[in-house]
């Protein structure tokens, strides 16, 4: 009898342990995904970053390009430039829960740090649209300079930063959407990234990135590879996608110089990082794939086929 009881308790304990392990791994699984906008086939590929495989393909609007993931709210906002709308994905179920009509092309998206608002650059009418995440609709907009391309939110100063592709400039707005600074960049700035007291733009036509000090407004251009598209920083490095070079430029920010290049797939466009898993993901428009790197040594772990013309302009990793 005693033996039987012991056995019973053991079974119970084991099953509790197993379910905890299951829940834990599941938690990681649902919280570690990359969302890849495939502009050529109107889909988003959902990539499981634990097993490194595509687990779902979601039909969205036409020609999806920009994206921003709201980690706390478990939402993904996808900008469709062909249907002039935004597909909102619930990242717990990976289903579209709402389509927000805009009547203008949403080029890039970012969110406020508290994830209550999503900002969208309106390519056609030179606005930034403000979407209330709670109401799932556009609640306001403000005028910006011509051809607003990239957009990023700086948490340190509460600045919204927008690149103006055709006027070779970057605009900095405060939280009241008032323009406080307009600065020259290199030729044809597209992607923009900001962290701490710096903002960075990737300048497609002159193969440079511009580093802007948001405190004293000084700036500096750094030479990279051919047709840089987007940029992010990690510790003392800046990583830049060189679209025509099929490479990443690695910049040492202590000396503001490119220290090496690493190979990517064909026509790499955008990049994002999963902090806990130490992964760097690059979208390859030319080879319809993503390249996954170990962030510690920048070695390629795997290239995964996604959909046609993978781009994911914005923050595309759920973590």
């Amino acid at each position: 009898m005693i033996n039987q009881n012991k056995k019973f308790i053991l079974i119970i304990l084991t099953s509790i342990l197993l379910s905890l392990i299951y829940l834990y791994s599941n938690y990681y699984k649902v919280n570690s995904k990359a969302y890849i906008t495939n502009q050529g086939d109107n889909t988003v590929s959902v990539v499981d970053l634990i097993n490194l495989e595509v687990i779902k393909t979601i039909k969205v609007g036409i020609a999806p390009l920009g994206i921003t993931i709201l980690n706390k709210k478990n939402l993904g906002f996808i900008g469709n430039v062909g249907t002039d709308d935004i597909s909102v994905i619930d990242t717990r179920t990976d289903q579209i829960i709402k389509t927000i009509k805009l009547n203008t092309a949403p080029l890039s998206l970012t969110s406020s740090p508290d994830e209550s608002k999503v900002y969208v650059t309106d390519w056609f009418k030179n606005n930034v649209l403000i979407i209330s995440v709670e109401e799932m609709k556009v609640i306001d907009s403000f005028k910006v300079g011509k051809t607003p391309s990239g957009i990023a939110f700086n948490k340190k100063y509460n600045y919204l930063i927008v690149t103006n592709r055709d006027s070779n400039s970057v605009e900095v707005y405060n939280k009241n959407t008032k323009l406080i600074k307009k600065l020259a960049t290199g030729n044809h700035p597209f992607g923009v990234y900001t962290k701490g007291k710096y903002a960075y733009t990737a300048n497609v036509y002159d193969d440079t990135v511009t580093v802007i000090n948001l405190e004293d407004w000084s700036s500096k251009d750094i030479k990279v590879g051919a047709h840089p598209y987007n940029i992010l920083t990690h510790q003392n490095l800046a990583l830049v996608t060189n679209a025509v070079d099929d490479s990443l430029s690695i910049i040492d920010l202590k000396i503001d110089k490119e220290i090496k290049k690493i190979n990517t797939g064909e026509t790499p466009e955008n990049l994002d990082i999963h902090q806990k898993l130490n992964l760097l993901i690059v979208t390859n428009w030319g080879s319809d794939s993503i390249s996954i790197y170990d962030l510690k040594n920048l070695k390629l772990i795997k290239e995964i086929k996604t959909g046609a013309q993978s781009r994911s302009f914005g923050n595309f990793i759920l973590q």
Binding site: Q39, I62, A63, L65, V81, G82, A105, W285, A308, Q309
Partner: peptide, 13 residues
């Protein structure tokens, strides 16, 4: 009308 919108790079492969 599908292709009239947006700054979409064209791809031939």
């Amino acid at each position: 009308s599908i292709f009239a919108h947006g700054p979409t790079p064209q791809k031939v492969q």
